[in-house]
Nucleic acid binder design. Sequence first.
DNA 1: CACGATATCTTGTCTCCCGATATATGATGT
DNA 2: ACATCATATATCGGGAGACAAGATATCGTG
Lengths: 118, 118
Amino acid sequence: MCLMANRALTEQAFLVLTALVDEPRHGYGIVGEVERLSDGRMRLRIGTLYGVLDRLTADGLVELDHEEVHQGRLRRYYRLTDPGAAALAAEADRLSVHVRAATSRLRARRDRLSEGGA
Amino acid sequence: MCLMANRALTEQAFLVLTALVDEPRHGYGIVGEVERLSDGRMRLRIGTLYGVLDRLTADGLVELDHEEVHQGRLRRYYRLTDPGAAALAAEADRLSVHVRAATSRLRARRDRLSEGGA
DNA sequence: CACGATATCTTGTCTCCCGATATATGATGT
DNA sequence: ACATCATATATCGGGAGACAAGATATCGTG
């Protein structure tokens, strides 16, 4: 366990954390929620999920909530921790700066080009 | 050259494209601009830059603008192409969806927790 | 009773980020 | 004069991580 590892989150880790903000979810539930919250554009691969989940657990950003058997199949539910919520907030902030920089510059470029082309 | 490769951009590629929206820049200029546009939080490593630049060039998202010698040292300037601007806009849009999902859920979580804690 | 969906996890491959290194010139300091 | 640092290009090896594919198991459906 390494709670102090505040390296930048990967995009997949970001999406997993986001999917867990509302309520604890199990593996397949996380995959479905990620697809939903990204407007169906991001499909988290099942092989990717468990690696991400292991790393997030090791860093203390998520933790095992409980296990239950649903229709004969085991479901392992994960929960967002407070450090996890803080890390997600920090990463969202960081990304938001990049997105704003890109969109404002692109807008200026479009204005510049349409002016020259008119 | 593979113009049709619309795989998702890496974060570093996103930042390089953003740095080139305003005007053509050379390698070191890109590094400095990335640091500026990320509020000093992202320092693009020089070893990373040239790999990113090679891939973006191969995909037709940037292209060589011109070369000039400044104070005895060669500067190789790169320029954003129209497909590059389109790819950057699409990626900014995609990230923006993720950021909004995270922030709105985190806000709801904070409200929920402060309510229970009050 | 085969097949697909649900559910977990492992393994191999491939991309790519990063640190280190190489090379070269101009500017700065002592 | 000479060392050192900033600028500027590029390459290489290591390691992290995403993804495809497969293993294993149960339930529902046709």
